[in-house]
Simulated scan of single mutants.
Amino acid sequence: MYTDHTPLKELMGHFPQAGEVIWIGLRTATRQEIEIVEETYARIGTGLDGDRYKGNADSKRQVTLIQAEHLAAIGSYLGRGIINPILLRRNIVVHGINLLALKDHRIQIGDAVLEMTGLCHPCSRMEEVLGEGGYNAMRGHGGITARVLQEGAIRSGDRVTILKTK
């Protein structure tokens, strides 16, 4: 008899702490400056209010998130300090939680509920904004994409908590 309650599945549901939103950025238009905000609203199908990305309810890339801890890693690979998240064009920077461990989990950030839909791979622009080697410095550290499951406000300082396994 098949069961979802394997020891590995159980381990993958343990998180040592909640994360925290430390930065929110909205991409108002292609190749335009990021607007840094303290609060935004997540909407099903269209992502974050004020962000240029407009998908549909089934889109897997409504919101992008990256770990603050990876900003230091990327900087280290480039021989620099912590990278400014404006350069990476992700929507939300969190710290204190491993985003890659969110596979098959739903997360609550403020009033919104998101679900990880995949990895947010770097694009060729990373060479342009970070310099030579920027693309490779980002590989494996680009964050995740997510879909909005429940609309709500997201604010800087909000906790990032795991709701349940799918």
Rank of each mutant, 00 (worst) to 15 (best):
E127I: 01
D158L: 00
R90A: 05
S156F: 14
H105V: 04
I36A: 13
A73T: 15
D111S: 07
T30A: 15
Y135T: 04
R155N: 05
R80K: 14
I144L: 06
N98A: 13
G134Q: 02
Y41I: 03
Q108T: 07
G45H: 06
A68F: 13
L88C: 07
I22K: 07
E35I: 08
T6M: 01
L114Y: 06
I74P: 01
Q17C: 11
T30H: 14
E115H: 10
K166D: 15
S76Q: 15
P16A: 10
Y53W: 12
L130E: 03
I74E: 02
L149Q: 08
K9R: 15
A72D: 14
L8N: 07
D158P: 00
I22E: 09
E115I: 13
Y41A: 01
G143R: 04
D104V: 00
V113C: 09
G134E: 06
D111L: 08
G45P: 04
K60V: 10
Y77P: 02
T28N: 10
G157W: 00
I22N: 06
I109Q: 02
V148A: 00
G133Y: 08
I83D: 00
R159E: 15
L88P: 06
R125L: 14
M1A: 13
E38F: 09
I34C: 07
A57T: 10
V63H: 00
G45M: 03
F15I: 02
E35V: 12
E132N: 15
I154H: 03
N91C: 04
V93H: 00
A153E: 11
E10Y: 13
L71T: 04
S59G: 02
D158I: 02
K103A: 13
E132I: 12
T117M: 07
I66D: 03
I97R: 04
M138P: 01
D104C: 08
Q32H: 14
D49K: 05
G13K: 07
R52D: 02
T3R: 09
T3V: 08
L8W: 11
I92P: 01
H5T: 10
P122R: 05
C120Q: 05
G152C: 03
I82M: 15
Y2R: 15
R159F: 12
K60S: 11
E69W: 08
V63F: 03
G96V: 02
I162F: 09
I44V: 10
Y77C: 13
G140P: 05
E69T: 08
G140T: 06
E39S: 09
R159L: 14
G13Y: 05
A73Y: 10
H121K: 15
V148W: 00
E69K: 09
H121Y: 14
L99K: 02
I22H: 08
K166L: 13
L78S: 07
Y41G: 01
M116P: 01
E33V: 09
I162Y: 09
M138A: 06
T46Q: 04
G79D: 12
